[in-house]
Amino acid sequence: MEFLSYLISGISLGSVYAIIALGYTMVYGIAKMLNFAHGDVIMVGGYISFCAMSYLELPGWLSVVLAMAVCTVLGVVIEGLAYKPLRQATSLAVLITAIGVSYFLQNAAQLIWGASPKGYTPLVPALNAKGEPNALQLFDGQLSIPYLSLLIMAVCIIVMVALTFFTGQTKLGKAMRACSEDKGAAQLMGINVNRTISVTFAIGSALAAVAGVLLCSFTTSLMPTTGSMPGIKAFTAAVFGGIGSIPGAFLGGILLGIIESLAKAYISTQLANAILFAVLIIVLLVRPSGLLGKYVPEKV
């Protein structure tokens, strides 16, 4: 039972990683760049929903919608101002710019909201009005699954299904896949590549906002660096699953969450992250393109 409960907590943490990893992997797949500011968009999403709930006293679901709207705009603006002018530049220049944007967002958040952690009211409180844990009790109370975990997993599955459908069966999704394979050929078929990249950033950032709200609900605190560690872990998850692949990001995220949760429970809380990255190294040694990534030989 104990094991099951750790496993479920791992899956729900992993679901958050998976949603963040989807943002990384989609942007990488299409723009062939690592958007290291993605983690900080999560943090902005968290702050926006925090402000909406505590200052504007909006209900939780509305704060999520607001956070998604703000982050979508933020993502498109970042792409337009920072990355678009560098479309022809070397990938290293874009990478450095992304790190710059990441620091910019963190410091801007620190100026606006201060460096001290803010207490975040979870979307689903841990205790209900009667003071009982807000959880699904199974096996005569031996296994309790918080409703929050269930919510996170449900959101993750919905996002996953929606994205799979979107990229597979809508014209914009197909345009995205075409751009990720061959931008030159895609634009000669009349596809506006810049617009497609903007849309990708918009979707990734909206997902980041959702992830931000879920993450803050999970950790119940919020500060300007909230997004960086989950951001890095989600990036790891994307690489783990095979960067550029949507099911890969999903699988990588869930596995990473489970490994982290089990390592914390059975090995050592402090060593959990070290174990996590050690597993990543081992996987990459065996399968350099990740679990579901395709090995693409360099053309000569």
């Binding site: 197909k174 030159g184 050929a185």
Partner: peptide, 14 residues
């Protein structure tokens, strides 16, 4: 320069 990972029909739909 086809989109190799897409189906034949999806290539035409692009």
């Amino acid at each position: 320069r086809l989109f190799n990972n897409l189906s034949v029909e999806d290539n035409v739909k692009i």
